[in-house]
Amino acid sequence: VKVFRALYTFEPRTPDELYFEEGDIIYITDMSDTNWWKGTSKGRTGLIPSNYVAEQ
Rank of each mutant, 00 (worst) to 15 (best):
V1I: 13
V1S: 12
V1D: 09
V1W: 13
V1R: 11
V1K: 11
V1H: 12
V1Y: 14
V1L: 13
K2E: 05
K2L: 12
K2A: 09
K2T: 09
V3S: 07
V3D: 02
V3M: 12
F4P: 00
F4V: 11
F4Q: 00
F4G: 03
F4D: 00
F4N: 00
F4L: 04
F4R: 02
R5V: 15
R5L: 12
R5I: 15
A6D: 00
A6W: 03
A6C: 04
A6I: 02
A6H: 01
A6G: 05
A6L: 04
A6N: 01
L7P: 01
L7E: 03
L7G: 01
L7R: 06
L7H: 02
Y8I: 08
Y8W: 11
Y8V: 07
Y8E: 06
Y8N: 06
Y8K: 13
Y8T: 07
Y8D: 04
Y8H: 10
Y8P: 00
Y8M: 13
T9M: 06
T9N: 11
T9A: 08
T9S: 12
F10P: 01
F10N: 08
F10G: 01
F10L: 05
F10R: 12
F10H: 13
E11T: 14
E11Q: 14
E11H: 15
E11P: 03
E11W: 15
E11C: 15
E11N: 14
E11L: 15
E11M: 15
E11S: 13
E11Y: 15
P12S: 07
P12H: 03
P12Y: 05
P12E: 02
P12V: 05
P12M: 09
P12C: 06
R13E: 09
R13W: 05
R13N: 12
R13A: 11
R13Y: 08
R13T: 14
T14A: 11
T14P: 02
T14N: 14
T14V: 08
T14S: 14
T14R: 13
T14E: 09
P15S: 12
P15T: 10
P15A: 13
P15W: 07
P15D: 13
P15Q: 11
P15H: 10
D16G: 12
D16W: 13
D16R: 09
D16L: 13
D16M: 11
D16N: 12
D16F: 13
D16Q: 12
D16E: 14
E17K: 08
E17L: 08
E17R: 05
E17Q: 15
L18V: 05
L18N: 01
L18E: 01
L18K: 01
L18H: 01
L18S: 00
L18C: 02
Y19C: 09
Y19M: 08
Y19S: 12
Y19T: 06
Y19K: 10
Y19E: 10
F20A: 04
F20H: 00
F20I: 11
F20Y: 02
F20K: 00
F20V: 10
F20Q: 00
F20N: 01
F20E: 00
E21S: 09
E21M: 09
E21N: 08
E21V: 10
E21F: 07
E22C: 10
E22N: 05
E22K: 15
E22Y: 08
E22M: 13
E22V: 14
E22D: 05
E22I: 13
G23H: 05
G23K: 02
G23L: 03
G23N: 07
G23Q: 03
G23P: 00
G23S: 03
D24T: 05
D24N: 04
D24F: 04
I25L: 14
I25R: 04
I25V: 11
I25T: 10
I25F: 09
I25W: 09
I26N: 00
I26Q: 00
I26M: 05
Y27R: 06
Y27M: 11
Y27G: 03
Y27D: 05
I28H: 00
I28M: 08
I28A: 02
I28V: 14
I28R: 00
T29K: 06
T29D: 08
T29P: 01
T29C: 13
T29S: 12
T29L: 14
D30R: 03
D30Q: 06
D30L: 04
D30H: 06
D30N: 07
D30F: 05
D30I: 04
D30K: 03
M31Q: 13
M31G: 04
M31H: 06
M31V: 07
S32V: 10
S32R: 10
S32K: 08
S32Q: 10
S32E: 09
D33T: 07
D33S: 08
D33V: 06
D33Q: 08
D33Y: 04
D33K: 06
D33A: 07
T34Y: 10
T34V: 14
T34D: 14
T34N: 13
T34C: 13
T34F: 10
T34H: 13
T34P: 15
T34K: 15
N35K: 14
N35Y: 15
N35A: 13
N35Q: 14
N35T: 13
W36F: 08
W36L: 06
W36G: 01
W36E: 01
W36M: 08
W37K: 01
K38G: 05
K38Y: 15
K38H: 12
K38V: 15
K38M: 15
K38P: 04
K38E: 08
K38F: 15
K38C: 15
K38D: 02
G39I: 03
G39V: 03
G39L: 02
G39C: 01
G39D: 01
G39Q: 01
G39N: 02
T40E: 12
T40Y: 15
T40R: 11
T40N: 11
T40S: 13
T40Q: 11
T40L: 09
T40C: 15
T40I: 13
S41F: 12
S41Q: 05
S41Y: 09
K42D: 10
K42R: 14
K42I: 03
K42T: 06
K42Y: 09
K42S: 11
K42W: 06
G43N: 07
G43D: 06
G43E: 05
G43H: 06
G43W: 04
G43A: 04
G43L: 04
R44A: 08
R44T: 06
R44W: 05
R44H: 09
T45Q: 10
T45F: 14
T45R: 08
T45P: 05
T45M: 10
T45E: 12
G46F: 03
G46P: 00
G46D: 00
G46T: 01
G46R: 01
L47C: 08
L47G: 02
L47Q: 05
L47P: 01
L47N: 06
L47R: 09
L47Y: 12
I48A: 03
I48C: 05
I48Y: 01
I48E: 01
I48F: 15
I48V: 15
I48M: 03
I48Q: 00
I48P: 02
P49W: 05
P49C: 10
P49I: 03
P49L: 07
P49Y: 05
P49F: 05
S50M: 07
S50Q: 06
S50P: 11
S50K: 10
S50F: 06
S50I: 06
S50N: 05
N51D: 12
N51E: 11
N51F: 10
N51S: 14
N51P: 06
N51T: 12
N51A: 13
N51W: 15
N51L: 10
N51H: 14
N51Y: 10
Y52T: 03
Y52E: 02
Y52H: 07
Y52I: 07
Y52Q: 05
V53F: 07
V53K: 02
V53R: 01
V53G: 03
V53W: 03
V53H: 02
V53I: 10
A54W: 10
A54R: 13
A54D: 08
A54L: 13
E55I: 13
E55Y: 11
E55P: 14
E55N: 07
E55H: 09
E55D: 09
E55Q: 12
E55G: 07
E55C: 10
Q56S: 13
Q56H: 14
Q56E: 14
Q56D: 14
Q56V: 15
Q56T: 14
Q56I: 15
